[in-house]
């Protein structure tokens, strides 16, 4: 059980695939249009169940609870030998 007051992420399907606008490519039309947002959980709730949150803009929203204590996992990517190659070529140009 995730406790009320926890910072969480919720997911919502805004439009099912068949409800989507016709002016989009077929691959996009074949999948639902979804959204995610984060906020403070307002009720004790299990993962993947309907949760109500208050967001950082003080907005109330509901959706499926998909993440607890969401973290950023950004990085600079894997080592690329091409980057070293660019640097060596530039050094030779000076």
């Amino acid at each position: 059980m995730i406790k009320k007051g926890t910072f969480v992420r919720i997911e919502k399907t805004i439009l099912e695939a068949e409800e989507r606008t016709s002016k989009i490519p077929d691959d996009t039309k074949a999948v639902p249009f979804k959204m995610w947002t984060k906020g403070i959980l307002q009720n004790d709730c299990k993962m993947n169940e309907e949760a109500t949150i208050i967001t950082m803009a003080n907005r109330k929203d509901t959706g499926k609870l998909v993440e607890v204590d969401p973290m950023y996992e950004l990085n600079y990517g894997e080592f690329l030998p091409e980057m070293i190659e660019i640097d060596l070529r530039l050094k030779n140009e000076r």
Binding site: T21, V31, P32, F33, M35, K38, T55, M56, A57, R59
Partner: peptide
């Protein structure tokens, strides 16, 4: 991340022009 660091709520969506509707 940067928007949230500066105090904003960030709503993220999947691909599509329906973002305008949202």
């Amino acid at each position: 991340r940067k928007c949230e660091a500066l105090g904003a709520e960030v709503i993220q969506t999947t691909v599509g022009p329906e973002l305008f509707f949202e």
